[in-house]
Simulated scan of single mutants.
Amino acid sequence: MAIALNTLVEEADRFLNAARIQDYCPNGLQVEGRPHVSRIVTGVTASQALLDAAVEAEADVILVHHGYFWKGENPCVVGMKQRRLKTLLVNDISLLAYHLPLDVHPEVGNNVQLARQLDITVEGPLDPDNPRVVGLVGSLTEPMTAGDFARRVRDVLGREPLLVEGERMISRVGWCTGGGQGYIDQAIAAGVDAYLTGEVSEQTIHSARENGVSFIAAGHHATERYGVQALGDYLARRFAIEHLFIDCANPA
């Protein structure tokens, strides 16, 4: 079964409430391809590797979390950007991308989906007074050591995380997928035992150590694999079309 491209885009925009979220890039349809869709390929980032795999999979639409046209980037269509866009245009494939709308969504969002993977019960936002902080806070079913929690993260995400081990058992966790290390101060203020994100900065280590909380950096790519899969599954069910997630490995 095939549906109109504009029908798919309108539903994704509506479902994610994309128009109401200020972002660093355009959300929604970034490159227009053929007018009808029967197969979606999803992935974390619209890299050349993903584009090539999607061409091989005969995709009509590539749906990603990290798309193109970021604020402040060089707008010239040269080099890597030219090759990526040429791949889409020559093969008549659409690129659909959602950044912050896919981080914050209460059903298919990266943060909610990561909580489900790690068996964390969501309690609410990491910083209720600041909606731009997209992280969450929640609790584990049973308290565990930082080492045990890090091993759970490793087993689920398939990647050895960086661990700064605090002194206390972990029962309350704050997290923000991707590059959320700058929110560690909000996590500390929220009274968590551990803070989990994708990346780490030099000062993050000091903040964790000096405030007695555990910190885990589990990888930007690894922590953001689940939202786009959930969105792809939703659209596939909604319109009875095919969906294939392709994971292009990235150690960062």
Rank of each mutant, 00 (worst) to 15 (best):
A97Q: 01
V164Y: 11
K71Y: 04
G135C: 05
L63R: 00
A190V: 08
A53C: 11
V192I: 05
V153E: 01
Y234S: 05
L136G: 06
E210S: 10
G33P: 09
R116I: 03
E165D: 14
R209S: 06
L163M: 12
C248P: 09
N111F: 00
V61Q: 12
L50D: 01
E242I: 00
V77G: 07
V112P: 06
V164K: 12
V173W: 08
Q113T: 07
L136D: 04
V192G: 02
R172C: 10
Y183P: 12
A208C: 14
S47E: 09
V64T: 13
M80I: 12
L89F: 13
L88K: 02
G79S: 06
E10N: 11
E224P: 09
L50Q: 00
V9Y: 09
I62D: 07
E11M: 13
A208D: 12
Y183R: 08
C25I: 02
C76Y: 03
W175D: 06
P101G: 03
Q229Y: 05
R238N: 03
E32S: 14
T177S: 15
T45H: 12
V44Y: 03
V156G: 04
R14E: 07
A240C: 09
V104N: 00
G191Y: 01
D127V: 00
V164I: 15
F69I: 01
G72R: 10
A18V: 14
D92E: 13
D129A: 10
I93G: 10
V77C: 09
A208Y: 14
L163D: 06
Y98D: 05
Y183H: 15
G166S: 11
W70D: 02
D92K: 14
Q82S: 06
A194Q: 02
V41R: 12
V44G: 04
V90S: 08
R84I: 06
V77F: 04
S201D: 13
L88F: 11
V122S: 04
G227Y: 05
Y98V: 04
I40S: 09
Y195Q: 08
L157K: 10
L157S: 06
